[in-house]
Design a protein around this nucleic acid. Sequence first.
DNA 1: CCAAAAGTGTTGTTGTTACACCCATGC
DNA 2: GCATGGGTGTAACAACAACACTTTTGG
Lengths: 227, 227
Amino acid sequence: MPQSIKVAVDAVVFGYDAEEGVSVLLIKRKFEPFQKFWALPGGLVKDDESLEEAVRRELKEESGVDVTYLEQLYSFGKPDRDPRNRVVSITYYGLVRPKDYQLSAQTDAEDVAWFNISRLPKLAFDHKQIVETAIKRLRGKLAYEPVGFELLDKKFPFSDLEKLYQTLLATQLDRRNFKKRIMSYGFLEELDENVQRSVGRPAALFQFNRKKYFELKDKGYNFDLFL
Amino acid sequence: MPQSIKVAVDAVVFGYDAEEGVSVLLIKRKFEPFQKFWALPGGLVKDDESLEEAVRRELKEESGVDVTYLEQLYSFGKPDRDPRNRVVSITYYGLVRPKDYQLSAQTDAEDVAWFNISRLPKLAFDHKQIVETAIKRLRGKLAYEPVGFELLDKKFPFSDLEKLYQTLLATQLDRRNFKKRIMSYGFLEELDENVQRSVGRPAALFQFNRKKYFELKDKGYNFDLFL
DNA sequence: CCAAAAGTGTTGTTGTTACACCCATGC
DNA sequence: GCATGGGTGTAACAACAACACTTTTGG
């Protein structure tokens, strides 16, 4: 008896916003099973595309999002995770700035939206588990790599980075110690520009220096951001 | 056009031995493609078994090894990784004590053997890449968790643990500092027994206290073994 | 002048590294 | 008695954590 397992990909795309915190991109399913449930963007892999191509295609099709940073997360394959037939899903997670995209639901998606990770709706299939796995991984990654690159604007006040870390790690940080540590790596540069959002003293803007970052990383430098 | 992708699992099983160092379990393929090439144990997933069940079954069938510690590694799915048809492989890695097993080649394996990771033969498919990924992961894991559990005998002299780390991390360790650190976690206990292997002063035996280890781990304790 | 957020150094404590000699055994 | 591997403590240094007041703006 030949094997009859389908191969799918699903994506957990994280977005960050200083006011909203961390959110995940979800689509509302147009068809059964789990019609009208929220679910992760994803779908079956085509015979001639790679796994990563498949995720990017599905993301674009269903939500209109083109993600730059994308990494494989885990593969889920319990025999009964899809009620129709057996589907093994290779999942990926990505990071974007929500403001960079205009969401647009298409193909099997009736709707698309960002959901704060602390206020997720009921999800289709085993997608809750997938999202939880992704959050754990994101936290882990954050601890030894400056994920802010992908989640913050090109130029941002230092307090944005601080808030991002505090939100993701669910902890308080000492502003001075945090800044000292981040600046000591040398991949973050201060600009001669200020910005003021609402009240208070205007803040200096910073930007990541990707070149320096990758130089350090390639040298095997360890960004120990355990805080 | 329906999807026609097969789902396989492959396992990178590591063994450690104080004299031999770190080795990987390989099988010699009985059939085409890559007939008589060495390859990772693995094969197609059956419709009604989970991915992990599939790996364990294939491992047992092809090599006679029953692995206790097993973790998902990565999924490989480039369209051309198998010359016959498209196969997505979900790979796992495991750790065992080679001496615990009597190898026995069966089903599609003509032979089974341990190969030192620095003297690997030419491998079938993209298995070289898979092994490299697994070695990287093992090194990473070693840095924050005491992998010795699975790779050393129940009771072992402290120098075995030291050698294991030095081998895997390819670095020299200061005996006193290493012991201080390991002992400070409290999951390793010294026994009232000595052993003498070849010449030299007899060594005290140690054993892992799994209970204490998992207690600490569950409390979110961080084993920072970066050395 | 008050509220709000940004900015800025120092000190005590803790953890990490470097380092060298004695011990128990077999041959 | 010598070769082999096992066992042990301390001191200098570096890293980290704790901590509070001043500055700039808008209203």
